[in-house]
Computed example of a mutant assay.
Amino acid sequence: MTAPAFHITVHGTPAPQGSKNRNAAGALYESSAKVKPWREAVKSAALDALAYDEAWLPLDEPVRVDVVFTLLRPKHHYGTGRNAGVLKPSAPEHPTGKPDLDKLVRSTQDALTDAGVLRDDSVVTAVLATKTFVLTGADALSHPGAVIRVWRLNKPKESES
């Protein structure tokens, strides 16, 4: 298998691209206060990675985005008192609550576009996205964040001889 065209690890709390609201003056603003720091974290990590590739041009071809979002477990998944820090047997294995996976993907793709990884998020033709808890699966981090890989879907053209 070929290597991904782009690969980063982002540290920070993944946040969904929520709905937009209007203020009294009619201006649009993001309904989630958490999305701006997340998008900035993704953009910053992407720009740091791109700084080492002077020839990088935003991907303008079909791509697949693979992303594993690592989330903290809620406190109620753990016991109390002498069982503090011990996972309850009833704690779910997979995160099923908010944030919604599709909205996490949307905010992340927008940040990749802002950073110049993608020409536009319309070039994304396939997405493999996962939500996991800290240290509970493949690519799960030891803290909140995400592992992001972008794969080119076009086969490389053979050079003409």
Score class of each variant (00 low, 15 high):
69 F>W: 05
81 G>V: 01
50 L>D: 01
63 V>T: 09
48 D>M: 11
64 R>V: 01
52 Y>L: 11
56 W>G: 01
72 L>W: 10
47 L>I: 02
47 L>A: 08
80 T>E: 05
50 L>V: 05
67 V>Y: 08
84 A>Y: 14
64 R>P: 02
65 V>Y: 05
54 E>T: 08
57 L>T: 15
62 P>G: 03
47 L>P: 02
82 R>M: 11
77 H>G: 04
63 V>Q: 04
63 V>M: 04
48 D>K: 15
72 L>F: 06
72 L>C: 07
56 W>A: 05
57 L>E: 12
70 T>G: 02
49 A>V: 04
79 G>H: 01
61 E>N: 08
67 V>G: 02
60 D>E: 03
63 V>R: 00
60 D>T: 07
82 R>T: 15
49 A>P: 05
59 L>K: 07
60 D>W: 00
51 A>C: 02
77 H>P: 09
78 Y>G: 04
54 E>W: 04
84 A>T: 15
65 V>A: 04
51 A>M: 06
57 L>C: 07
48 D>W: 09
70 T>P: 11
67 V>R: 08
55 A>Y: 12
65 V>I: 03
71 L>I: 14
59 L>P: 06
65 V>L: 08
58 P>F: 10
75 K>T: 13
73 R>H: 10
58 P>Q: 09
78 Y>D: 00
53 D>R: 15
74 P>F: 03
47 L>W: 03
50 L>S: 08
84 A>E: 13
59 L>C: 10
51 A>R: 04
59 L>G: 06
47 L>V: 13
80 T>N: 00
49 A>K: 12
64 R>Q: 15
71 L>C: 13
81 G>H: 06
78 Y>L: 02
64 R>C: 02
75 K>S: 15
76 H>R: 12
56 W>V: 05
66 D>M: 03
48 D>S: 11
67 V>F: 10
81 G>S: 08
79 G>Y: 03
73 R>L: 07
72 L>P: 11
74 P>Y: 03
50 L>E: 01
55 A>M: 12
61 E>T: 11
63 V>G: 03
55 A>D: 13
61 E>G: 01
63 V>W: 05
65 V>K: 07
47 L>F: 02
73 R>S: 11
54 E>Q: 12
55 A>T: 15
71 L>S: 13
54 E>M: 04
78 Y>Q: 09
60 D>S: 05
57 L>H: 14
81 G>I: 01
49 A>E: 10
83 N>Y: 14
